[in-house]
């Protein structure tokens, strides 16, 4: 608790002077008594020493007051004030640094969160493009396969048709030969073909 004593120090000198005068007056009075007091008495009550005691008390106390009020107390007050200032400043600094650190931590958290969401986005995009690509590849392969299948089917159908027409021709020839052998009478090629067609249609 710093104390500003300069006010009283300035006002205090008249007071100190008056007090000093009071003490001196008392000393003078005591000295008169002291001269008359002859018998040895209880030392603290012996007026013979009052003057000297008062005089030296006044001197030492005045010097003490002067030293305390001019040197010691202002200096200690300054020290305490300075310490309070230093502590306050250090605390402020610490608070500022803490706030800064918190801010940095927040920024870091934010960056981290951003990076995380970015990473998620990238992963998502990668996954999507991957899926799309594989889809497209699959589609292409499927289409290719379907085309091949269709081609194969067409080839099969063509071969079958060819085979069937061969079978038909062969069948009508066989039918003509069989009918001729059985009846001795050769049917016309048109009749035989028709009969074969009917037989084929029946299955």
């Amino acid at each position: 608790m710093p104390v500003r004593s300069s006010g009283f120090v300035r006002q205090g000198w008249p007071l100190a002077a008056v007090s000093f005068a009071t003490l001196a007056a008392g000393a003078a009075q005591a000295a008169e008594h002291g001269l008359s007091g002859e018998k040895a008495s209880f030392p603290p009550f012996d007026p013979a020493h009052f003057a000297s005691n008062l005089f030296w008390l006044a001197v030492t106390f005045a010097v003490l007051y002067w030293l305390m009020s001019k040197i010691a107390l202002p200096r200690i007050g300054e020290i305490l004030e300075e310490r309070a200032g230093t502590i306050g400043r250090d605390l402020d600094q610490a608070a500022a640094m803490q706030a800064k650190a918190e801010e940095m931590a927040q920024a870091y958290e934010k960056a981290l969160a951003e990076a995380r969401s970015n990473a998620q986005g990238i992963a998502q995009a990668a996954r999507e493009t991957g899926a799309k690509e594989s889809d497209a590849k699959r589609h292409a392969t499927e289409a290719e396969l379907a085309a091949k299948l269709a081609q194969a089917e067409a080839t099969i159908a063509k071969t079958k048709t060819a085979a069937m027409s061969n079978v038909r021709g062969l069948g009508s020839d066989v039918a003509v030969a069989i009918v001729t052998k059985l009846t001795g009478q050769a049917p016309t090629a048109a009749e035989a073909t028709e009969a074969v067609d009917q037989a084929l249609a029946r299955g």
Partner: peptide
């Protein structure tokens, strides 16, 4: 001036008190 202002043992200890307090404080 006829005043007995002798430097006594009381005075000595007043000065010692002054010295001790000043030593601590100053």
């Amino acid at each position: 001036f006829g005043l007995d202002l002798s430097f006594t043992n009381t005075s000595l200890w007043m000065v010692i008190v002054l010295a001790v307090v000043s030593a601590i404080m100053i």
